[in-house]
Simulated assay, not measured.
Amino acid sequence: MDSIELFTGAGGLALGTHMAGFHHRGLMEWNDDACDTLRRNAKLNALPGISGWRVHQTDVRMMSFDLFGEVDLIAGGPPCQPFSLGGKHRAQDDSRNMFPEFVRAVRELQPRAFILENVKGLLRQSFSNYFEYIKLQLEYPTITKRRDEEWTDHRNRLEEVRTKGRHQGLKYNVISELLNAADYGVPQTRERVFVVGFRSDTNLEWHFPEPTHSLDALKWDQYITKEYWKRHRIRAPRNEPVSLGVKLSDLEQDGPFKTKPWRTVRDAIAGLPEPIAGRDAKDFSNHRLNPGAKVYPGHTGSPIDLPSKTLKAGVHGVPGGENMIAYPDGSVRYLTVREAARVQTFPDTWLFEGSWSEAMRQLGNAVPVDLAAVVANSVAAKLNAGDEH
């Protein structure tokens, strides 16, 4: 099945859809370092089958999507700064708002399905009307905004079309959900909004995949069976997880759990040598120590025996609190780029171009590969099943 990727960044979503069996006919990205990352990994065939990836370094507003021909899937994460909790929250008034370009790609290529992802901030109450507007545009992509028409008036027209229920043109069945990456095996509590649509003439039924991992299962593994500590060959702590509001008596009553344990920072970085400053570790690219990590209020790091906090790109540089490991003895250090890549579930063969801060920015903007793969695998399975009937 063929696909294109918009706003590819360092390739998290593109890798997930690739792993699900989609063949990318084009990857679009603007950032120099992110494009260098994509090109280098394609040249090295960092993952089997990606050597043919074609990277278009371009402003998507200037792109004619017709050159890609017929595709089964469009995927992408439009720039999130207009909606991010760490951004300036200008939403539809922000020049970086690229949702209209994603809608245009759907309108021009009419894929059988699309996957759009974005930050949790898109669900904030102040943006709720605009989020519904985005979904309505994706539902009826050929009903376009008129020149000089306010977006609220366009939204009203789309709502009228939906309530009338007689639209005969291009239509998608669209659903959205907030997913926590930790619930799907990613060692990071990263919440992302996914919007998935299937072209209505496919007549396919679909729902978001059920979570496979949980905090309760992690606490069971750590404090009831203690298998977690045995697996890492370290002594189990005496303290109960009171700070997380988990009672061991409740765990014993409810467990064992059908879900797997949340994966932790310690799980993610297992097998990597201790980093040193000045040079990469042997056999591991992008794995060198960046010194200078410090703790201060609001800047405390991610406890090593829990999933990482959400890695962030930051508006004014990289916020180090989310990009530090916090050890039980109170010490902290910055994650290396390779460790952050593992937290984002990129394969060790994936190389990142640019300085430490720029590589971290790419990672902070990325979709966790394994989360993308879970959603993409489910979409691919449904499309393939539709082909068989």
Rank of each mutant, 00 (worst) to 15 (best):
P82N: 08
E101D: 10
N129Y: 10
G87R: 08
M62C: 04
P100T: 05
Q81C: 04
S128Q: 14
S126Y: 12
G76E: 13
T17W: 14
P111A: 00
K88T: 00
F22G: 01
V103E: 15
M62Q: 10
V103P: 09
F65G: 03
Q125W: 15
T58S: 11
R107V: 03
L73S: 04
N31D: 12
L116N: 03
H23V: 08
R104A: 00
I115Q: 02
M98G: 01
C35F: 15
Y133V: 01
L27V: 05
C35P: 15
T58F: 08
G86Y: 15
S95W: 11
I115H: 03
E108W: 12
A91R: 11
P100H: 14
H24M: 12
A91D: 14
V71A: 08
T37Y: 13
S64P: 15
K120F: 15
C80K: 03
P100F: 13
D32I: 05
A113R: 02
A105E: 12
K120Y: 15
D36T: 03
F83P: 01
M63E: 15
G69I: 02
F65S: 01
D32E: 15
N45C: 07
K120L: 15
S84I: 09
G52M: 11
N41D: 15
Q57V: 11
A14P: 08
H56A: 07
T17E: 13
G121I: 10
R90L: 11
N97E: 02
P111H: 09
L123E: 11
P48V: 00
L67Y: 09
G87F: 12
G76I: 09
F99T: 06
L116G: 01
G121T: 04
C80D: 08
C80W: 12
L116Y: 15
C80V: 01
T37S: 06
G69P: 04
R124D: 13
R39T: 06
M19L: 14
F114G: 05
G87S: 09
G21L: 11
G26M: 13
H56C: 08
L73K: 06
V106R: 12
R90P: 08
Q92G: 00
Y133N: 02
I50R: 01
Y133L: 06
N45W: 10
E108Y: 08
H56K: 05
L47F: 13
F68Y: 14
H18K: 04
F68D: 06
V106N: 04
F114W: 11
H89T: 00
R61Y: 12
M19G: 03
L116W: 09
D94N: 02
S84T: 07
D72N: 09
R61L: 07
V119F: 07
V106K: 10
F22Y: 04
F22E: 02
D36S: 05
D93G: 00
R124P: 06
S64Q: 14
L123K: 10
G69R: 00
A91Y: 15
R112A: 01
K88C: 01
F22T: 00
R54N: 09
T37R: 05
E108A: 10
F102C: 05
M62G: 01
D33M: 09
Q92H: 14
